[in-house]
C-alpha cells in the first residue's frame, strides 16, 4: 500500500476527464426531462454513440468527425424513442428500458468488427500560458476540447433554459403540457427537440468513453454510466449547475477508487469498484430525504403521456 503515490493534482485533473461522459449524458437527459419526457434509455444511447463514434473515427481517421457521428447515432436512437413515446404513446419507462436493451445489442453487433482496433489519438488542447500555471494548469487547462465543450454546454443549457423564451416554453411544456398546449405551444415538437438533444449528448458522452477514456472498443464499455447520469439528474434536482457538481462528485469517486486500486489498498478490488454505485444510492437517499424534498422540483408532467383533448 502506497498512498503517497496518489497526487491530489493528478487526481483532480483526471476527475475532470472522468466526469465528462457522465456530465454530457446527464445534461442531455436534463433537457429531455425538463420538457417532461423521462428517457431511461440513456445507457443504450450512450453505448450506441460509443460504437458509432468509434467506427466513424476509425473510418475517417478523425476523432472530431467521430464525435459528430456519435451525436448523430445517439440522436437516431432517441428518435426511435421519441416516435414511440410521443406519437404512439407507449409507456415511457418500458420504452426507455427497451431502448437500453436494443442499444446494447446493436452496439455489440456493430462492435464485433472493432474489437482490438485502436482509435485515432485525440490530441489534448494544451493551452499555452494557462497550462503552465503551477497547480491550476494541470487541473484546469491541460485537457482535450470535449472537456471544455461539456463545461460550455452546462452554461449554455442554463442560459437556454432560464434566460431565453424558447427555454421558458420548454419548461412550460414539461411543467404542464395541457396548459402549454392551450397557449398554443407545439408540445410534441418541443419534446421531440429535447429528446433528440438528449440523444445527441448521450451519444457524445459514449464516444468520449470509447475514443478518449478507454480508448478502444470493448463490449459494455459504458458499464452503467448512463444510469449514473440518470441518477445525477435527480441529484441535481433538474438544475444545470448542480449537475456539474454531481458529475464531479461521481467522477471523483471513480477516479479515487481506481487510484486506490493501483495503490494496492488492502480492500478487495470488487469492493472498490462497487463504490461509485453505492455512493450513487447514498446520494439519492440523501437528496430525496432532505428538507427541500427534491421530488418537488421534478417537472410536473414528467413521464406523463400527452394526448391533446382539443
Amino acid at each position: 500500500m502506497n498512498l503517497s503515490g496518489i497526487s491530489p493534482v493528478l487526481l483532480l485533473a483526471s476527475l475532470m476527464v472522468a466526469s465528462t461522459p457522465i456530465l454530457l449524458a446527464a445534461l442531455g437527459e436534463l433537457v429531455a426531462e425538463r420538457s417532461g419526457v423521462l428517457n431511461l434509455g440513456v445507457e443504450g444511447m450512450m453505448i450506441t454513440g460509443a460504437i458509432t463514434g468509434f467506427a466513424v473515427a476509425v473510418a475517417t481517421g478523425s476523432p472530431w468527425i467521430g464525435f459528430v457521428g456519435a451525436a448523430a447515432g445517439g440522436a437516431a436512437l432517441s428518435l426511435l424513442f421519441a416516435v414511440l413515446v410521443l406519437w404512439l404513446r407507449s409507456n415511457q419507462v418500458a420504452t426507455g428500458l427497451a431502448l437500453t436493451l436494443f442499444g446494447i445489442g446493436l452496439a455489440a453487433l456493430v462492435g464485433q468488427a472493432y474489437v482490438g482496433v485502436r482509435a485515432p489519438v485525440f490530441a489534448r488542447l494544451d493551452l499555452p500560458v494557462l497550462g503552465d500555471l503551477p497547480i491550476l494548469g494541470p487541473i484546469l487547462f491541460r485537457h482535450d476540447a470535449v472537456v471544455y465543450l461539456g463545461l460550455g454546454l452546462v452554461a449554455g443549457v442554463w442560459w437556454f433554459l432560464h434566460r431565453t423564451r424558447a427555454g421558458l416554453r420548454l419548461r412550460a411544456v414539461g411543467e404542464n403540457h395541457d396548459a402549454a398546449h392551450a397557449l398554443g405551444y407545439k408540445v410534441q415538437l418541443i419534446r421531440l427537440g429535447a429528446v433528440l438533444f438528449g440523444g445527441a449528448l448521450a451519444g457524445l458522452g459514449g464516444a468520449y468513453l470509447s475514443l478518449v477514456r478507454v480508448p478502444q472498443w470493448t463490449q459494455g464499455v459504458t458499464a452503467g454510466a448512463g444510469w449514473i447520469a440518470l441518477a445525477i439528474v435527480v441529484f441535481a434536482s433538474w438544475r444545470p449547475w448542480r449537475l456539474l457538481l454531481g458529475a464531479w462528485l461521481f467522477g471523483g469517486i471513480s477516479v479515487l477508487q481506481l487510484n486506490l486500486q493501483a495503490a494496492r489498498v488492502p480492500i478487495p478490488v470488487e469492493v472498490l469498484s462497487m463504490a461509485p454505485y453505492v455512493v450513487t444510492i447514498l446520494v439519492l437517499v440523501l437528496i430525496s430525504s432532505g428538507r427541500g424534498r427534491a421530488a418537488l422540483a421534478a417537472p410536473g408532467s414528467l413521464g406523463q403521456p400527452f394526448h391533446a383533448a382539443r
Binding site: L80, L84, T95, A98, F102, G105, L106, A108, L109, Q112
Partner: peptide, 18 residues
Amino acid sequence: PAAAIQLFQGMLLFFLLA
C-alpha cells in the same frame, strides 16, 4: 453473432410497445 439475438429481443419489445 451472439449480439444479434440480443438486438432481436430488444426489437421484439419495441414492436410490442409500438
